[in-house]
Design a protein around this nucleic acid. Structure first.
Lengths: 318, 318
DNA sequence: TCAAAAGTGTTATCCTTACACCCATGT
DNA sequence: ACATGGGTGTAAGGATAACACTTTTGA
């Protein structure tokens, strides 16, 4: 009871994202080999320390991993009562989203493919087959609720989150999807949290290894936010080198959104939108015709209210 | 030093918004007459209490003010080191945005006009005249920086935030505007924080009374978020009675965005967008032809990925 | 010469904007 | 009758989506 009476502990959590080899990756700590679940980097907040939370985050990330964070934004504060440390003290986590350029990926260890944690979120090779079993499990649950009054509301959430209605699949809803799967016990940590056998759930194997505590939920929050933000703010450029080809740009957007885009229209939107300017140079290592190198055009911020990349899915692809 | 070593205190802050008589209002505590600055309602987080932060917020708001909150979303967590209580302990505030229906405005005391705190944000009667002095003061500052290397960056922020470039005024950037004014010492609390005389700043009278601590910044954050959100999520309906006319709807959107909208196009966007359905009834108290009463159409959530109200300014109006 | 990737051009379609006009009520 | 606010129709312009096609390199 002593621990419960003390004030909560405050922790900063960093979701650090990079894109390499067409995969979005997240920096994790802990060893994949030891069997212990991976975790997001986190550090305590020193009350006497840095002047702002963001500075505090930047400084311990630099000390711990050597990474100089560029773009950083506050993501969400997680404070459910179930979040406790080993001594039973409540933990409040202020999570931040950070984006780093591809080159800065020096500390090779710890970068994990994001879609390893959410295989159903990557539609680039078509609709992931596992979605059938996932939605089936969720449907069964809304059906099983039978006379339960929550069933219609749950059915609506399911329809919206997984794009079963006319609206179709919306990459941005990754958090809602994770939450539904969690509630349904279809991801590993949900069954663990309840003390059930890991294989008791209908689809406990969905989505691989899971992460420590509720870190997978935090990662899902970050993915949702990032997917939403590329549409109206030029954040993608935080993930690219200073000079890049339009294909590189497209591939990074595709990696984040988890969707294939229509090439020609994407190019036009980017160029007409004034988001980039051509440097005079070319990249000759593309395997075909050399590609023009572009650079982010800062001035667009003054010209347009919401400069971002519309995510227009390709027609042929799935 | 003892206080500095103890963990930070955690506080929940509520920005509770309603719209009445075409004005957005915010619930405050403290008396306007006593001379003490108004504050947003806030309460401590009881670590042994409610299961989630949001529940904790709902329950103390209900106990304190009798308000049953409907829509609630987490806004931002404020944790600058300068935030201290009377004993010098660092305070971390998790702020929430809540929207309540007009009728629920029972506790008449404490509802303040939002634009009393940000007069420059209300463009419904045309460009507010005070903007001239505000931007002049800010320009003077970027100019005064002279050889300072920060000046160009500051000038860019000023252009973007106040819409001096081609992009024009963007209601959503209210936080950025507040921050610039704060940095420039053009709002009351900025000069107070620095221990200057309140009337020492170039435009210290901008924006009326100010609020306790950094609560005006929190309110600016809420306004920005809300203005952004109406564009892609049907949150306006949380502020309206269940049945409403299209004019009422438009007026609420105008009140929030601080901009006059084009009537016919607004109506079409709302109806074609499937956001509302007509109930069969009419409102006869409009002063002209009776107006159809509408209701929010929930099903739109299943049909469209981002159902919201485009804020298309009127042509004639300013 | 061929494959691969870059890059250009064009058309049909939809959405948005702006304008003009008609309708139903209270005074 | 007329002022007031509610409501409808439509034509011009621009943005988008889908299509086919040309160009430039390396193997």
């Amino acid at each position: 009871m002593n621990a419960a009476e003390a004030g909560p502990i405050i922790q900063l959590v960093a979701v650090i994202i990079a894109v390499t080899a067409n995969q979005p990756r997240v920096l994790t700590v802990g060893e994949a080999t030891s069997g212990a679940p991976l975790a997001l980097p986190s550090g305590p907040l020193d009350p006497a320390g840095d002047r702002t939370l963001e500075r505090a985050l930047r400084s311990w990330v630099r000390r711990q991993s050597g990474l100089q964070l560029g773009y950083v934004e506050q993501l969400y504060t997680f404070g459910d009562a179930a979040r406790r440390d080993a001594d039973g003290r409540r933990i409040l986590s202020v999570a931040y989203l950070a984006l780093v350029h591809e080159q800065q990926l020096a500390p090779a260890a710890g970068w994990q493919d994001c879609y390893g944690f959410f295989p159903w979120e990557d539609w680039r090779a078509g609709r992931p087959p596992m979605l059938e079993s996932a939605t089936a499990a969720l449907r069964a649950r809304t059906g099983a609720a039978g006379a339960n009054l929550l069933a219609p509301e749950l059915a609506e959430r399911l329809e919206i989150a997984f794009g079963l209605g006319e609206a179709g699949w919306d990459p941005e809803r990754s958090l809602e999807r994770y939450e539904l799967l969690y509630e349904a016990g279809a991801v590993a940590e949900a069954t663990l949290d309840r003390g059930l056998m890991p294989d008791a759930g209908p689809a406990a194997t969905l989505g691989g290894p899971g992460m420590a505590q509720d870190h997978r939920r935090i990662l899902a929050t970050a993915l949702s936010r990032l997917r939403g933000k590329i549409k109206y703010r030029p954040v993608v450029f935080e993930l690219l080198p200073e000079r890049f080809t339009l294909s590189q740009l497209q591939q990074v957007v595709e990696a984040l959104a988890g969707v294939r885009l229509h090439k020609q229209n994407f190019r036009r939107l980017v160029e007409q939108g004034g988001l980039v300017t051509s440097t005079g140079d070319y990249d000759y290592g593309t395997g075909g015709r050399p590609a023009k190198l572009f650079r982010f055009r800062r001035r667009v911020l003054r010209e347009r209210a919401a400069p971002g990349l519309r995510v227009t899915p390709a027609t042929g692809g799935a």
